[in-house]
Design a protein around this nucleic acid. Structure first.
Lengths: 220, 220
DNA sequence: TAGATTGTTAATCGATTAACAATC
DNA sequence: TAGATTGTTAATCGATTAACAATC
C-alpha cells in the first residue's frame, strides 16, 4: 500500500501525453508503441514507459499501448472523469477569456459563479452566470460544492482573497495574480505567471541572438 | 570564452528573483543576504547563490547583495533593458486581455500590430492599434522590427501561422495555441498551455483528497 | 581584527536514459 | 515459435544542497 510520491515533472507531462493520445484516437489509430509515440512527441521512449508505469502497466509486451484505453486511463489519473466546479474571481479581460474558453467545460471544468469588486457589474451576467460581490464568495463556495477558484485579479487583492478561500476550504486555486500565495498544503495552487513566461522568452531569444553574433565573430 | 549552457531550470527562476528584488527595492531595502532572501522566497540560500553565480558575482562577502544593483543586473540578463516589439495574432478574448495588460509595456514589451482573420475587425482598433488581415503579417514583421509574435488563435490555424512567422525570421513565439509548434532552433518558443496547467491542478487536488481519505482509513 | 557572507567545490539527491529479461 | 515491445532494474546524467575557504 506504500505510495511513492510522484514528481511534478511526471505530472507535468501527463497532459501532453493526453493531448497526443486524443489526436491519435481522433485519427482512428488503435495502438501505438512507446517508440512511435516517442518519435511524434520528441521525447525518449524510455521516458514514456517510465512515466506511465508510475500509474500502472497500461501496455502489453509485443503490442504496445491501446490508444483509446490509455487515453481514458490518463483522463482518470488527471481527474477528468469527474466534474469540477469553479468560480472566477475577477471579471476582467483575462477572466472573461477563460470563461469563454469552451475546452474547459468540455473536460468537465464548469464555472458556477463569478465575483468582482466592481458594484456596477453585480447582477449582470456573462455566459448566463451572474456576477456577484466579493463578500459572497465564502457562502457560495460552501453552498455550491466549489473545487477550484480561478484568481484573475491584480496582485494587491489576491492575498486577502486567498485567505478567504482557504477559510472556506477550497481545494485548489488557479492563480493568475502575479504574487506567490501562501496557503496550507491542503490547498493546491497552480500559478500562471504570464510575465514570468514572457521574460523567459525574452531571455532565450536574446541569448540566441547573442550566440549567433559570437559565432560570427569567432568565425563559427 | 567557454560559455556553459545555462539550464532552463535556472532561467525559469530568474523572473521570480526579479519580482522579489523589485518588491524589496520598493520597500526601500538596500541590501539582502542570500539567507534572508531564501527565507522570503522559500528556496535554499545555496540555490540562490548558485543560480546568480551562473551570470557573475553580484554579491560581496560579509555584506550580501545590493538590492538595486542586483535588480538592474537581472533585468539586463532577462533582456528587460531593451524594448521588444510584439505583434498579436488573434484578437479574441485572450488576445485582448494580453493587450490590456499594462505590466508588459512597463517592462518594455510593446505591441505594434494586431492581426485577425475576421474581416469585420480589419481597420478597427484596440488600444489605438489597427487590426490587420493575416496576409499582412509577413511584411509587417519585416518592416517594423518585430521580435516576438504572440499567438492567441485556435490550434488549427497556429501551425500554418508559425510557418509564416519562421519564414519572415521572427525571433520568438509566445504560443497560447494548444499545439506544439515545430520550428527551427533559431526561433524560440514559449508555450502557455492553459488547459495543461488546469489539468495539473486537477491531478494535484484529486491526489491530495485521495491521500486524505487513505490517511483516515489507515488511521493517519 | 572578528564576523558575516559570498563564491565555489564537493557530496547528495533525483530524474532521465539505457539495457535487458519477461512476456505477449 | 520468433519477433516485438513492455515493465523494470541499473547506469548515467544533471540539478540541488552542503560545506568551507576566500574575502569583504
Amino acid at each position: 500500500m506504500e505510495r511513492k510520491e510522484i514528481s511534478q515533472a511526471v505530472i507535468g507531462r501527463l497532459p501532453r501525453y493526453y493531448r497526443y493520445l486524443g489526436e491519435l484516437r481522433d485519427e482512428g489509430v488503435e495502438r501505438i508503441s512507446s517508440q512511435e509515440l516517442s518519435r511524434k512527441m520528441q521525447v525518449t521512449a524510455s521516458q514514456i514507459r517510465q512515466d506511465l508505469n508510475h500509474f500502472g502497466g497500461f501496455g502489453q509486451q509485443g503490442y504496445g499501448y491501446n490508444v483509446e484505453y490509455l487515453y481514458v486511463e490518463i483522463a482518470k489519473i488527471l481527474g477528468l472523469d469527474k466534474e469540477h466546479y469553479l468560480i472566477l474571481i475577477g471579471a476582467g479581460n483575462l477572466g472573461q477569456a477563460l470563461l469563454n474558453y469552451n475546452n474547459f467545460a468540455r473536460r468537465g471544468f464548469i464555472f458556477k459563479g463569478i465575483f468582482d469588486k466592481n458594484p456596477e457589474l453585480h447582477g449582470t451576467k456573462i455566459r448566463d452566470i451572474e456576477i456577484r460581490p466579493m463578500e459572497e464568495i465564502s457562502n457560495f463556495v460552501k453552498d455550491n460544492n466549489i473545487d477550484i477558484a480561478v484568481l484573475t485579479i491584480p496582485k494587491n487583492g489576491a492575498i486577502k482573497v486567498a485567505e478567504t478561500l482557504v477559510a472556506c476550504n477550497i481545494k485548489a486555486i488557479w492563480n493568475f495574480a502575479h504574487v506567490d500565495l501562501n496557503v496550507p498544503e491542503s490547498v493546491q495552487v497552480e500559478n500562471v505567471h504570464l510575465s514570468d513566461s514572457l521574460m523567459k522568452l525574452s531571455y532565450n531569444s536574446s541569448r540566441y541572438q547573442g550566440m549567433k553574433n559570437e559565432g560570427q565573430k569567432a568565425g563559427d
